[in-house]
Amino acid sequence: MSNNKAYKEIAPRLRGIRDAVDMTTTQLAEKVGVEPSLVEKYESGEHEIPVSYLMDVAHVCGVDLTVLISGNESHLTNYALVRKGKGFSVDRRKDYDYKNLASTFVGRRMEPFMIEVPAKKPEDMNFTTHRGQEFIYVLEGKLELRLDDSILILEAGDSLYFDSNTPHAMRGLDEKSARMLDVIL
């Protein structure tokens, strides 16, 4: 699925869920901490939708993140097994390759992802913020992670726990991708 197609498929679910909980774009914007124009932009299906925004909307509207991304309900309540190299691809962001590792589990309290972070130039890094906390464990490669004004270099086996409200951006180093486990709470 191309990224544009993913945006077009996710956007109507965003609008539908907002309508189902009887919220205006202004009310939703206030609850997730963005401008109303940004809510409208994401609901248009023409723009990249950050996973952090989807998580915030899911939380505010009381729905599972899987519903917003795939349109399908989660269904397992006891465990969710994901085999090596699998996981639900979150094909909605050009910066990173996300695979959700618990998309079938109902009532998740965290969102675990396997993320492939490509090499890029420092000026091409995109900062993001979102509610909650985040834990990163580097599996392969070398990762540059910027937290506000701090530049951290993480290698395989290194981990970092941080407040996700801190502006953060990542890139693979040495002209190679880095692979990491990312858990968002």
Rank of each mutant, 00 (worst) to 15 (best):
residue 1 M to Y: 04
residue 1 M to R: 04
residue 1 M to A: 07
residue 3 N to A: 10
residue 5 K to H: 07
residue 5 K to D: 09
residue 5 K to Q: 11
residue 5 K to C: 01
residue 7 Y to N: 08
residue 7 Y to H: 13
residue 10 I to N: 01
residue 10 I to M: 03
residue 11 A to C: 11
residue 11 A to Q: 11
residue 12 P to M: 08
residue 13 R to K: 09
residue 14 L to C: 06
residue 14 L to K: 07
residue 17 I to R: 09
residue 17 I to E: 11
residue 17 I to F: 10
residue 19 D to C: 05
residue 20 A to V: 06
residue 23 M to G: 01
residue 23 M to L: 15
residue 24 T to A: 07
residue 24 T to L: 08
residue 25 T to F: 02
residue 30 E to N: 10
residue 30 E to W: 03
residue 35 E to P: 04
residue 35 E to S: 11
residue 36 P to M: 13
residue 36 P to N: 12
residue 37 S to D: 00
residue 38 L to T: 11
residue 39 V to G: 00
residue 40 E to H: 10
residue 42 Y to K: 06
residue 43 E to L: 00
residue 46 E to M: 09
residue 48 E to A: 13
residue 51 V to N: 11
residue 51 V to D: 08
residue 53 Y to K: 05
residue 56 D to V: 12
residue 61 C to N: 05
residue 62 G to C: 14
residue 63 V to S: 12
residue 64 D to E: 15
residue 64 D to N: 12
residue 65 L to H: 09
residue 65 L to C: 08
residue 66 T to P: 09
residue 66 T to S: 15
residue 68 L to V: 06
residue 68 L to K: 05
residue 68 L to H: 06
residue 69 I to L: 09
residue 70 S to M: 05
residue 71 G to Y: 14
residue 75 H to W: 14
residue 79 Y to H: 10
residue 80 A to F: 07
residue 81 L to S: 04
residue 81 L to C: 06
residue 81 L to V: 12
residue 82 V to E: 13
residue 89 S to Y: 15
residue 90 V to D: 04
residue 93 R to A: 07
residue 94 K to W: 03
residue 94 K to C: 02
residue 94 K to P: 06
residue 96 Y to L: 02
residue 97 D to W: 03
residue 101 L to P: 06
residue 103 S to G: 02
residue 107 G to Y: 00
residue 110 M to P: 04
residue 112 P to Q: 01
residue 113 F to S: 01
residue 114 M to H: 10
residue 118 P to S: 06
residue 121 K to H: 12
residue 122 P to W: 07
residue 122 P to E: 08
residue 123 E to K: 14
residue 123 E to T: 12
residue 129 T to H: 02
residue 130 H to E: 13
residue 131 R to C: 10
residue 132 G to P: 08
residue 134 E to P: 05
residue 134 E to Q: 08
residue 135 F to E: 07
residue 138 V to D: 07
residue 140 E to Y: 14
residue 142 K to R: 10
residue 143 L to Q: 00
residue 147 L to C: 03
residue 148 D to R: 12
residue 149 D to V: 11
residue 150 S to L: 13
residue 150 S to Q: 14
residue 155 E to L: 04
residue 156 A to S: 09
residue 158 D to C: 04
residue 159 S to C: 15
residue 159 S to Y: 11
residue 161 Y to F: 14
residue 161 Y to H: 15
residue 165 N to L: 13
residue 167 P to A: 13
residue 169 A to I: 02
residue 169 A to Y: 01
residue 169 A to S: 03
residue 176 K to F: 05
residue 177 S to E: 05
residue 181 L to W: 00
residue 181 L to T: 01
residue 184 I to M: 06
residue 185 L to W: 07
